[in-house]
Write a protein that binds this DNA or RNA. Structure first.
Lengths: 262, 262
DNA sequence: AGCGATTTGTACGTATGTATG
DNA sequence: CCATACATACGTACAAATCGC
């Protein structure tokens, strides 16, 4: 554990050749550690003093790096408590850009999804408007458990031919996986924008039963349309979210591209 | 000239009662000066040393304020040259990030807003979390008519001192105007991101009556948080949207920030 | 309720580095 | 090369929030 953390700061002890300011070198090292998972989301960082001792630099320098990390949203700092790794969906790696908020209005709550149905379809449906009506469409239904508090029903649609993986993969492997991530790693599909629409409507019996809420309840209905370019739709998705639970936050901002290096 | 600049920093010489950190007091004073036009866009600020001498604080403190102003996009700094008031601060073109969709799922429907209440407040409330709890807050309530089909109730909150225009402007001029646009043209405040949150909840009696829906109806509750930089909140807004009507679409206009954060 | 111990937050003064004109 | 002006860095000190005893 400590070994891993020490290794993060090892490179800082070597004399610098690049001319990068020290506080940025510290920042980059820590950013790398967070991204690569050495520090997991939610975990507590060592106190400033300790960090400073792990580097050949002064406390103030380390503090500045921490302040910048906090401004970038990678860590959250609490006076008198400590610094913690936050988890914010990063647009580039993770096309999720809406998540349920924790009580502190800052962190996001964990979710776990379970695939429950997969079908190939040729009919016309609400998805046709977005995916086109001519081709075979694969539908994947999942139930997303949010922080063990409530369930969300999700329907995912894509052209079967385009996303072969969805119906070729063993069904079990669709559990828990973030399908969008799967798409991202497996295909080189550059999803450039995701449109979201929300409205309030009455859920049908099937949905209500599946997510364990009273029959004919009203709830939040969200649609997401993921596109590559402005024309081409990669997938279309529907979410049925029970009322009154947690607020859903949209992260519409892309993190600045080049603060990592230099 | 110099007289005006000196006057900006006058208040800093008085002993602080509020507990606001010095670097923030410097920041606020300069922000005020830029907003109000004492420093015009493009003009050069005095060098760090001079600024420090104009305040009772150290160079480092002034530097930190300048760094933060730069991160918020209000000033631009050039090594060896000087600091300048940003010409056209980077902001979202259209601060409306979401609109109601027409039936063709493509166009947006027209809206018209009417101001119905304006108040100054000192209490603690849901806005405090975003705007801070110490200062006086101006609240502006409006009813937004959507395509003559239904009404949305909107509550707008901002620090009174920051957005003087909201409560200094004759009440009638707040009708129909896009307040955000007003802010954009009148002040040099670059809104770089707007966060949105949605949830479904029961509206209170007052709201229901104002937008002509049945008492105790459920509906879509949306919150919007507009920021300059990643830290500073410009305003906080709440929307109460009746159920089942039209879908609300979120557009992503990314302002592509290129600023170094801190 | 009080009192340390821990930990982050702010601030100062000073020194040196580096880009610009 | 020089003066100007921003950029980074250090070491130190104290303030303030939080937690556990």
């Amino acid at each position: 554990m400590t070994k891993a953390i020490e290794s993060i700061f090892k490179p800082l002890w070597k004399p610098d050749t690049t001319g990068i300011p020290k506080y940025k070198r510290v920042l980059n090292a820590m950013m790398e550690a967070i991204k690569s998972g050495i520090w997991e989301p939610g975990s507590k960082l060592p106190p400033e003093d300790d960090l400073a001792k792990l580097t050949p630099f002064s406390l103030g320098t380390v503090q500045r790096a921490l302040r910048a990390l906090s401004a970038q949203g990678l860590i959250t700092r609490h006076h008198g408590l400590g610094s913690f790794v936050t988890q914010r969906p990063r647009r580039l790696e993770n096309p999720w850009h809406c998540r349920f908020l924790a009580d502190n209005n800052e962190d996001i709550v964990p979710i776990y999804s379970k695939a429950i149905k997969r079908e190939l379809m040729n009919e016309y449906g609400p998805w046709s408007k977005h995916l086109g009506s001519s081709d075979t469409v694969v539908q994947l239904d999942r139930i997303i458990n949010v922080n063990d508090e409530f369930n969300v029903y999700s329907r995912f649609y894509a052209k079967a031919e385009l996303l072969k993986i969805i119906w070729e993969l063993p069904f079990e492997e669709l559990h828990g996986a973030n399908v969008k991530k799967l798409i991202g790693t497996r295909y080189q599909l550059p999803i450039t924008e995701i449109l979201h629409q929300v409205s309030v409507k009455q859920f049908d019996q099937y949905i209500c039963k599946k997510i364990n809420i009273g029959t004919n309840s009203f709830g939040l209905f969200m649609q997401a349309i993921a596109r590559a370019g402005t024309e081409f739709t990669v997938y279309y998705q529907e979410f049925f979210i029970p009322p009154g639970k947690r607020a859903l936050r949209f992260f519409e901002n892309t993190p600045a591209p080049n603060q990592v290096l230099e």
